[in-house]
Amino acid sequence: MSFATAGVAAIATALLLSLAGCSNDPPNPNPRASQPLATVPVDLPRYMGRWYIIALIPYFAERDMVGSHAEWNLRADGKIDDSYYGHKKSFDAPEKHYQFLDTPVPGKDGGEWSVQLFWPIHVTQLTLYVDPDYRYTILGYPGKNLGWIFSREPDMSDEVYKSMLGRLDAMGYDTSRFRRVPQRPDQLGKPGFATPGEKD
């Protein structure tokens, strides 16, 4: 097993543990916690390209990553090449890259993907919100113990960020668990941003 393959396997294992609720997740205090998540229709060609990870519920595989983003590329067979990039703990660290393969689930209008993390391991990814101009999007999982806020740009205003958290709150997420991902060195250590080495 190559180093890159081992890295993907580690991410897959950590994500599966989180999805299974084996990561000591705190109880969700949101009164809408039991409300099922609903996907939104997605124009897949328009959805492709680079998305910066603005905030997330930290978990093992992404907790110490900074400057992270995803690149989605729609293939001729309808599947999606899903590339993850980020730096471990420091912007001076070499950029890490993990490759996944996503398959839009039939009948879900592009809003639900089956993500192959590491053969034969697949997980479900839900698109919970996309703004009309395809500048921002929210991704999640049915258990609400994982979630992400993405943006086309590495910066997001506090006003927009608060509106994204408001949407997540209405969906039943515990928004207090979200941490912003530093996309610039000057954001390291700022209140509300994830700190490399910090335990959630």
Rank of each mutant, 00 (worst) to 15 (best):
Y161D: 04
P182Y: 14
D102C: 02
Y161Q: 13
H97W: 02
K162W: 07
S157K: 02
P154Q: 05
Q187T: 06
L139G: 10
S114H: 11
V123Q: 06
S163Q: 14
H97N: 05
K144C: 11
V181I: 12
D109G: 12
W148K: 02
A170K: 14
V105F: 02
Q187V: 01
G110S: 09
R135T: 11
S114K: 14
G189I: 12
E159V: 15
R180K: 15
V123M: 11
M156R: 09
R152S: 01
P185R: 09
G143C: 10
S151C: 08
D102L: 07
S176L: 06
I121H: 01
K108D: 01
V123C: 10
T103V: 11
G110C: 10
K190M: 15
H122N: 14
D169W: 14
I149P: 10
Y129F: 15
T124I: 09
Q187K: 12
S157E: 10
L128C: 00
H97T: 02
T127H: 10
M156C: 13
P104L: 13
D102G: 06
L139P: 00
L126D: 08
Y141P: 00
Y134F: 03
R180H: 08
R184S: 07
D155I: 07
F100H: 03
N145D: 13
E153N: 11
P154G: 09
Q183E: 03
M164D: 06
L139C: 04
E153S: 12
R180A: 04
G172N: 10
G189W: 11
R177G: 04
W148R: 01
T127S: 04
L139A: 06
L128P: 04
D102H: 08
P132S: 06
W148F: 15
L128D: 00
F118C: 01
Y173W: 07
R179T: 04
E112T: 09
L101A: 05
V115F: 05
K108R: 15
T127D: 05
G110Q: 03
S176K: 08
M164A: 12
G172A: 08
N145Y: 12
K162T: 10
M156A: 13
T175Q: 07
S176T: 15
I149C: 05
L139D: 03
G110P: 09
L101Y: 06
Q99S: 14
Y98M: 00
D158W: 03
V105C: 05
L126E: 04
R177V: 01
W148V: 05
K190E: 15
E153D: 14
Q99V: 08
P182D: 13
P132C: 03
V160R: 15
G172Y: 12
G111Y: 06
P104T: 13
G189D: 08
G140E: 05
D158P: 02
V181K: 00
H122P: 00
E153G: 04
Q187L: 14
F178Q: 11
Q99I: 02
D174I: 10
V130R: 00
S151I: 07
R179I: 01
P106F: 13
R167V: 07
